[in-house]
Simulated assay, not measured.
Amino acid sequence: MPNCPMCEKPVYFAEKKTSLGRDWHRGCLRCNRCNKVLNSGQHAEHEGKPYCNMPCYSALFGPKGFGHGGTESHCY
Rank of each mutant, 00 (worst) to 15 (best):
M1S: 12
P55Y: 08
E8P: 01
N3C: 09
R26K: 15
H46Q: 08
G67W: 11
F13H: 09
S40K: 03
G67C: 14
F13C: 04
N53Y: 03
F61G: 02
N3K: 14
G62H: 06
P10M: 12
G69M: 03
R30V: 07
H43I: 01
H46D: 00
G69A: 03
F61A: 02
M54T: 07
G41H: 03
K64C: 09
C4P: 07
P10A: 13
S73T: 11
K16D: 10
R22F: 06
G48N: 06
C31F: 03
D23V: 00
N53A: 06
F13P: 03
C7R: 08
N32W: 02
N35C: 10
S58L: 11
M1P: 12
E47F: 00
S40R: 04
N35W: 09
P10H: 09
V37Y: 12
M1C: 11
C28H: 06
Y51T: 03
G67Y: 14
G70W: 05
Y12I: 11
G62I: 01
L20Q: 07
N39M: 12
A59M: 12
N39C: 09
Y57T: 04
L60S: 06
G62P: 04
G48L: 02
K16W: 06
G70Q: 05
N39S: 15
Y51E: 04
F66S: 10
K49D: 01
K49L: 07
L60K: 07
K16L: 14
M54W: 08
L38G: 02
N35F: 10
K17Y: 03
G48I: 01
Y12F: 14
L29T: 03
A59D: 12
K17D: 04
K64N: 06
Y76I: 05
C31A: 03
P63R: 12
N53G: 06
E47I: 00
G27H: 12
G70E: 09
P63H: 07
A14F: 15
C56T: 03
Y57M: 07
S40P: 09
N35V: 05
S73F: 14
Y51V: 01
H25E: 10
M1T: 10
Y51I: 01
C34Y: 09
Y12K: 15
T71D: 14
D23L: 02
P55W: 04
C7N: 13
G67H: 13
M1Q: 11
P10S: 11
K9L: 13
G69L: 05
K64V: 10
K9I: 02
C52N: 10
G48M: 03
V11C: 12
M54V: 06
K17P: 02
S58G: 09
N35P: 01
A14Y: 15
Q42C: 07
P10L: 13
T71F: 15
G62R: 04
R22N: 11
K16P: 06
N53T: 10
T71S: 15
F66I: 08
D23M: 01
S40V: 05
K16T: 11
N3D: 13
E47Q: 13
S19L: 00
D23R: 03
C56M: 08
W24V: 00
F61W: 06
G67E: 15
